[in-house]
Amino acid sequence: MREEPTDEVNAAIAEIARRYPQPRSAALMVLHFLQERFGCLTPPLIEQAAEQLGLQPVNLYELVTFYPMFRMRPAGRWHLRLCRTLSCALAGSAELHRYLCEKLGLDPSERGPQTTPDGRVTVEFVDCLARCHQAPAALCNEEEWDRVDKGKLDEFLRRLESERGDELG
């Protein structure tokens, strides 16, 4: 992964900014774009984007530190967001979160994003994903999981294991 924005990235930022009457409005969409492209929002990326949008770096830092979906450190290759809110809690999501954290050596009392030491998985206990009728709901990268249960989590853990096996050769 490249760390420095390229001309191509700058062109993409300019393209996003063109959709708005004022370039500052493009901030969120630009941050989404950079995070998707580079994995996380590093200071050089943020500062370069700020300059291109005609903003001070702080104008973007204050967004990155406010909005839960932005991160300044990389997430795992798999980012599992499990819903903790009422309808999912009634369907057992707290137990599922604890189970997964214990299996992965993470802290079950932590709701914010936590990544395994090998950098493979990030687990986050998030608020309502607007799929309460399919509780417990989860979002794994971009994949929407419904009615999550231990079986589904075990399957996920097995997938991680076999991936690791593949990498070790």
């Binding site: 989404h32 909005y67 979906m69």
Partner: peptide
Amino acid sequence: EIHIHRGAGAYICGEETALIESLEGRRP
């Protein structure tokens, strides 16, 4: 012209004036 603007995980952005702030590129 219609454009899409994505939020980033903050419930308060549903409140219409927070939403407008967010769309202007500020904290909501």
